[in-house]
Computed example of a mutant assay.
Amino acid sequence: MQTLRGHTNWIWSVAWSPDGHKIISGSNDQSIRVWDGKTGQCLQSLQSDAWVMAIAPSPDGKTLASGGVDRAVWLVNLDTGESLKKLQGHDGWIWSVAWSPDGQLLATGSEDGTIRLWDAQTGECLNVLQASQMRIFSVVWSPDGQRIACAGSDSTVQIWDINTGQCLKRLEGHTNALWSVAWQPAGRLLASSGEDDTIRIWEVDTAKCLKILRIDRPYEGMNIAGATGLSKAQKATLQSLGAVEKG
């Protein structure tokens, strides 16, 4: 096991290069670092004008997309560190950046409640998907490149058709904000996780939740019915950590 040291503030996003040889990280220290995945050596440090919240290397490993507090998407040559394009249009922090499977398009999710689809070659914004009032923290492409799933502050997962710009499904069940959504490589299932301390596994076609994964809380199942000397506030705290009160 190795610890890669060099950032001086929170690290918000980490990704492997497609060839599996490099690790890329983005941080609140306004830098992106490229590491040798085998030795842990920092190969390159790219400076940014703002906190970096999201990074994603292109499928061919040649271009890095990043987004953050400055509301812009930056495209950088991963070999040389040269800045290639700056994509602007979002009105809030960018929390997620994702390449289409063929590397032709970019999807970005923002606090402004929109997903923007960009032509990676020209930098043109092709479409804006309005996800209600939700702040979007995670976007991911379907394996076939025809749909996008997003998740954020309203506790739902939304699935969008990129060709029609229509929201096809809303997956409901979480009880708090969602920070991550992932599409199964086979395309049949989605996984989502959030602040309700659960991971949910969804069947995409039916929008059915197939399984809920939860790590036991510190006092999961402890019966405090006979406990003495506890105030109401203390009991409430223990119950929030999994304790129960059964007579």
Rank of each mutant, 00 (worst) to 15 (best):
W12K: 11
T80K: 12
L178M: 05
I224K: 05
V14K: 05
C150L: 10
N223Y: 05
S100M: 07
C150Y: 02
C167M: 13
E172V: 11
A65M: 06
S231I: 11
A98V: 09
Q234G: 07
R200A: 00
R217G: 06
L105R: 10
D205A: 15
G123L: 11
V204E: 05
L106W: 01
V244H: 07
A15W: 00
K86G: 06
P218I: 03
E172K: 12
S96K: 04
L105I: 08
I224N: 02
Q88E: 15
V244Y: 08
E111S: 13
L117M: 09
W51I: 07
C150T: 13
G81E: 01
A65H: 07
W35S: 03
Q184V: 06
A236V: 03
C150D: 14
N223K: 09
V139W: 05
A149R: 01
Q2N: 13
K22R: 15
A182G: 09
Q184E: 13
N77W: 08
L105S: 06
L129A: 07
V52C: 04
T108C: 11
V73A: 04
Q47R: 14
S31F: 03
W74H: 12
G89A: 10
V157K: 01
W160K: 07
W183M: 09
A56Q: 07
G61T: 09
W202C: 04
T228Y: 05
L117N: 03
L189F: 14
R5L: 13
V73W: 04
T198W: 00
G165S: 11
V157D: 03
W51V: 06
A207P: 08
Q184Y: 11
W16L: 12
A149H: 02
S13C: 13
S83H: 14
D196W: 00
T80W: 03
N77T: 09
S142M: 12
S100I: 07
L84W: 09
R71N: 08
T175Q: 13
I24C: 01
T228S: 15
E111W: 04
T39Y: 12
G145P: 07
W179D: 02
D70K: 03
Q234E: 15
K208M: 06
D29C: 10
I136P: 01
G81K: 00
R135S: 11
L190T: 04
S138G: 08
A149L: 10
A131F: 02
T114S: 15
W93Q: 08
Q133C: 06
I212V: 12
W160L: 04
A243P: 04
V244Q: 13
W141H: 06
H90V: 09
S155Q: 09
L241D: 02
E220T: 05
P101S: 08
Q47N: 11
K62N: 14
Q239K: 15
S192F: 00
S132P: 02
W160E: 01
Q166A: 14
I201S: 06
H7K: 10
K62R: 15
D112H: 05
N9L: 10
L241M: 15
A207H: 05
S192M: 04
G221S: 10
V140L: 01
